[in-house]
Structures are given as C-alpha cells and as structure tokens.
Nucleic acid binder design. Structure first.
Length: 422
RNA sequence: GGAGAGAUGGCAGAGUGGUCGAAUGCGGCGGUCUUGAAAACCGUUGACUGUUAAAGGUCCAGGGGUUCGAAUCCCUUUCUCUCCGCCA
C-alpha cells in the first residue's frame, strides 16, 4: 500500500508512476485525497469533542468527591448531548477511513525510474544474456517425454491420487528434487542468509500482510474449516515474520532463506504452455527474502540478481535477465528482474526466478519499521526465487539430454550421488 | 474432543470504575565513577494520529455494551496455557 503522505505531497509523481504501471483508474488519486481531507476534518471535530467530554467527566469526578451532587447532575446533562454528536462523528470517521483504505488498496506500487514503459511481456527489456543455447541431437524431446522414458516424474500417478498439476517424483527424479533443494539452501547459507523453516499454512492476517489478500484470493488454496491458506510462496510466511515489528538500524540487513512447497490454484490457466513441469499446483521453491534500509534497497536488489545468476551459472544453464516493463510487473513491485532459462527442446524461455524490490509497499501493510533518530520509518522489503524447481528441472532434463541419457551438471553430483539419468 | 485458567508497554509483572498511558523489576539508551570494563548510583526509555512546531486525540488481544467517566463491570470472537483423552 502506498503512503497517504506520498499522495498528498507528490501527487504528480504518483500519477506518472501509476500511468507507467498502466493503472487505469487514475481518478482514484483525487478521490482518495478528497476523502482524506474529509477524514482529517472529521477527526479534528471529534478530537475536540472528546477532549471536552473528557474534561467534563473529570470535573464530575471532582464534584462527586466534594459532595456537590447537584452540580454534577447539571454537567451530566451536557455530556449526553456531546455523546450523540460524537457517535455520529465516529461513524463518519470510520466510514472515511474504510473508504480511504479500500481505495488505497486498489493502487499498485509506483515503478522505479529505470522501469521501461510497456504493457506486454514483449516490451520487457532484456538486460543481459548469458551462456550458449545448446544444439540438441536430432531425437531430442521435451521434458514430459523424458520424465516418462526414464520413469522419474509421473504425472498420471499424480492425477490419480490428487489431480492435474500434482506430479509424483520417483527414484532419480525425487533425488534430483532433494539435491536441488539442498544445493540452493547451501549456496544461500554460504552467501550469509539465515535459514528459516516456516509453516506452510498461514492465517488471513499474513495473507493481507504480503498482499495476496484480498485481490488474489482465488489463487490460493483455502482451508475453510480453520480459515487457513496454503502458501503460494515462502515469501508469505517469511516476510510476515516481521509483521508489526520495529527494528533497530543495526539489525539490517536481514537476510532469510527458506525452502517450502508452494501451492497455486492457477485458476484459468490451460493449454500447451502449462504442459509437464511448466505450470504446477504444487512445486518446490527456495526463496530469499531481505529487509533493507531504504537507502540500500536498490544495491541489495542488484546483489540478489547477481546471486541468482550465479546459481544458474553453476547449473550451466543459458539464461537471460529481463527488466520487467510497467505493465508486466506485479502489483506490489517497484522493480523486478525476471530470470529465464532457455529450454532447448521446447525452444522457449522459462521464467525460473523473479527478484523484486517492493520498497515500502509491503512494509506499509506489514507495519514493518525501524527506529531512526527517535522516529519510526518503514523498512524496504525484497525477495526472489533462488530458485523454483520445476522449470529448472525441465531445462536441466531437456538441455542435457544425449543419446546416452541425461548428463547432470557437475555441481549437483555430490548432492545426487549419481551423474546421469539413463 | 472434555474441564479449567488467562490475554496489560521489548520482556516479566502490579493495577479498590475517576489524576492510569498505566506501579515495579529486567532489558535498552545517556551520564557519574574507572586507564578500560563490570558493579554501584543518577537520569531516560511504547505506538499511532495530528501540526511548521505544539495543543489535542486514540490504543491495556479484537469487536460490542453499561456509565458523566472503563485496563478495571457485562456480552462476544480469537488466541494462549494447564489437566484429561487421542496421537506422528
């Protein structure tokens, strides 16, 4: 959520930013400002009345003590009147607050200056490319054929016990999952991240904290009996660790990493692009989350991007980095880098990581602050996948397939206990 | 699932319906002392809103009620703890 102060003081900047994000309802800005004005006016009136009522109540107390009951009765009559108006004012105030909040929740974060204009994924800016696109042998096939040929991932079995999008990993397929998770966690630890194992079910407050609720409600699995949600990413529980927290300046930077399964309903997705491992309802991901001082957050973002690229390099996968355009960025992000690996058999780029700086957009909802010279200031939050497994697996299988089997990258051998799937 | 107890400031923990935004202790910060540190002593130390700054207002789990006045009384929701049952 944006800060109302920003709207009041830098309206033009806000409008320009919203436009870049292709936010259609620019008139909301004026609506919010009008309500805000009304809200403050109401608050002022109410405060004055409350102040008066408080004084009267106090003097009644005094009068009672000194036994001047008659005078006290007189004052009592006066307060009943105040009470009436206060009740009305209170109602008006909470109505203003609610209205203002609802409108504020509709507004996306403002994009960073470097974010390119654009509406579609085609307008994302390719920042850099790395590695050679492999030339596969003639009989090369997409990963969903490889998985059944070597019997390492069974989509049919998953259909049987749960449904589409819940594959069963078997044998070397399962071990590959485990190896990747451990590899990603170990790398993060080397980089200085603190490992966290959070719950994978979260309550409503956490959903609101990171912004999945209310807008993306339909994308999460919801346990109605207990009103809990399956997490769509470890970002949700890990970032919410810091909800309602006031940190000290010396606590920064805070760097957490966590492995969790992730659950996404992916309502509305269909077709060839969701085949095989390309899009699943349940998948594994290692996520990095950082809390940063505002002045350092963009430097932090670059470091996170370089870190994720390092993982891809170690896995010997060709990749490119995109700077997402205003229209393709997520609601809460101020700047996002997407990392895509090239999947040679499908001949397309697959998004495997998304690294974002949310500035104070999330922390404003989370009330995540730190003390700075006696005042509390919103911290900045960042996160990134490091990495999501399914598409990495897809690319590893496809790009490394040979007539003799699938040759896995060296860095994984100690984790796997084998070097090829044949 | 059954029975009971509870929810107060960073933590622990007081709080007869009126001067309680809240005792006290610990912790934090500043200082005295010390070569330095510890100890001791002194002072200071919640958040939000509002304002140029103040004043003012709100917050004792959440919501509602009684009252001139609620941390304190009533209702309700949520959560936590203890005992029993079940159990990886």
């Amino acid at each position: 959520m944006l800060q109302i102060q920003t709207l009041r003081e830098q309206k033009d900047l806000v409008l320009a930013g919203l436009k870049k994000k292709n936010f259609a309802r620019l008139e909301i800005v004026d609506e919010v400002l009008a309500i805000d004005e009304k809200r403050r006016q109401t608050q002022f009136e109410l405060d004055n009345n409350l102040s008066e009522a408080k004084q009267i109540a106090k003097s009644i107390g005094e009068l009672m003590k000194t036994g001047k009951a008659a005078e006290a009765e007189q004052l009592k009559a006066k307060t009943t009147e105040l009470k009436e108006t206060n009740k009305a004012l209170e109602e008006k105030l909470s109505q203003c607050e609610e209205e203002q909040k609802q409108l504020m929740l509709l507004m996306p974060n403002l994009p960073h200056n470097s974010v390119p204009f654009g509406k579609t994924p085609e307008e994302n800016e390719v920042v850099l490319s790395h590695g050679e696109i492999p030339i596969l042998y003639n009989e090369a096939v997409p990963h969903w054929e490889l998985t059944s040929r070597y019997d390492i991932i069974d989509f049919e079995l998953g259909n049987k016990i749960t449904g589409a999008g819940f594959p069963v990993y078997k044998g070397k397929g399962a071990r590959l999952q485990r190896a990747l998770i451990n590899f990603f966690l170990d790398e993060a630890l080397k980089e200085g991240y603190l490992e966290i194992q959070p719950p994978i079910l979260v309550n409503e407050d956490s959903g609101y904290g990171t912004g999945q609720l209310p807008d993306k409600e339909g994308q999460m699995y919801h346990m109605q009996v207990d009103n809990l949600y399956c997490i769509p990413t470890a970002e949700v529980p890990i970032t919410n660790l810091y909800r309602d927290v006031v940190l000290n300046e010396q606590d920064f930077p805070i760097r957490n990493v966590g492995y969790t399964p992730c659950f996404r309903r992916e309502a509305g997705s269909y077709g060839a692009h969701v085949r095989g491992l390309n899009r699943l309802h349940q998948f594994d991901k290692v996520e990095i989350v950082q809390l940063s001082l505002p002045e350092n957050s963009y430097e932090t973002l670059e470091k996170m991007s370089i870190y994720v690229q390092g993982l891809l390099q170690k896995l010997e996968l060709p990749y490119r980095v995109l700077r997402l355009c205003g229209g393709d960025m997520s609601f809460a992000s101020a700047l996002t880098y997407d990392m895509e690996v090239y999947s040679a058999a499908q001949q397309r780029w697959l998004e495997v990581s998304s690294v974002s700086n949310f500035e104070s957009f999330q922390s404003n909802r989370l009330k995540l602050r730190y003390r700075k010279e006696g005042k509390t200031v919103l911290a900045h939050t960042l996160n990134g996948s490091a990495l999501a497994l399914p598409r990495i697996v897809a690319a590893l299988l496809e790009n490394n397939q040979t007539a003799d089997g699938i040759l896995l990258p060296k860095v994984l051998h100690p984790y796997l206990g084998f070097d090829k799937i044949a």
